[in-house]
Amino acid sequence: MAAAGALVAELPPADVLIDRSARTRFRLGFDRAMSWLTPLLFLVAIVPILDMVYYISRKVVPTLTWNIITSTNPYQTDALGVPLQTTFYLIGLSTALAVAFGLLGGIATAELLPERWANVARTSANLLVGTPSIIIGYLGYLAFVLYFGWGLVFLSGAVTLSFFMTPYVFRTADLAFSSIPRHIREAALGNGAAPSQYILRVGLPIAFPQILTGVFLAMAIGIGETAPLVITMEPGVLVPSNVFSPAIVLTEVIWENFTSGEPLLVLKAFQAAFLLLVIVLALNVIVRVISARYQKRLEGLYQ
């Protein structure tokens, strides 16, 4: 008991809990600096974007009429109905292809392939994302326009663009499935689910919000692409009547007219840019609303 008394007497003051080492002080200072720097950097990023949106909107909104947006009359030179509709069709087809291949590939990579092949697939997807779009466009030109002989048509553009979008879907599908808690997967398989049943009945509903986000991201990126389409499609005057028609999309309208110096054509480019902004914004809002709704069901799954 005497020993215990001595121990109590020798106890250091309570400030042993306070760490004054140089390293800790540096870390705390760094944290504080960062907490100021982050909003600052956010401003640096957001201000030019807002400025651009404001600049385009101010220029375009007063000039917009319903007719400009909807008219597909080839003789109305200031109308955007043709590229607007064509953009939707083109993105629709590219997205369908990207989802088909990206989803299958991503799920196979996460669930079915042995680790080695899975890593090969992941590396390829990363390479594809890192490849400049002009090169993908050129490869698409060689493959679809020349080798398959489709010509400079809607289908060549759509398929080329889908190559550009697929890796985004692939990566989110792979990631979404790989991050499903292991015990959920084991519970499904341990209760007699075949791998395909696990994927469809348990995996997909859990991975859905994340995959959806990836699909919309791919769409937003695809909508903004110009280079691969300029190389693989001949600009059309009409909304394509079939997949072997020439076709023109909104980004190409900007590309063709922006530097023309002709005030009416420059305005047309600005109007096209404005429509693109609205579409991308709408995509973002939609994906947020839908995935928030699905995410709610998953509360408590990742405790």
Binding site: H183, E186, A187, G190, G192, A193, P205
Partner: peptide
């Protein structure tokens, strides 16, 4: 798969599906 349908399993942690 058929084996696991006849021989069921319960794990250490609850593993309900969402």
């Amino acid at each position: 798969v058929l084996v696991r349908r006849r021989i069921g399993m319960v794990f250490q942690r609850p593993t309900v599906f969402p």
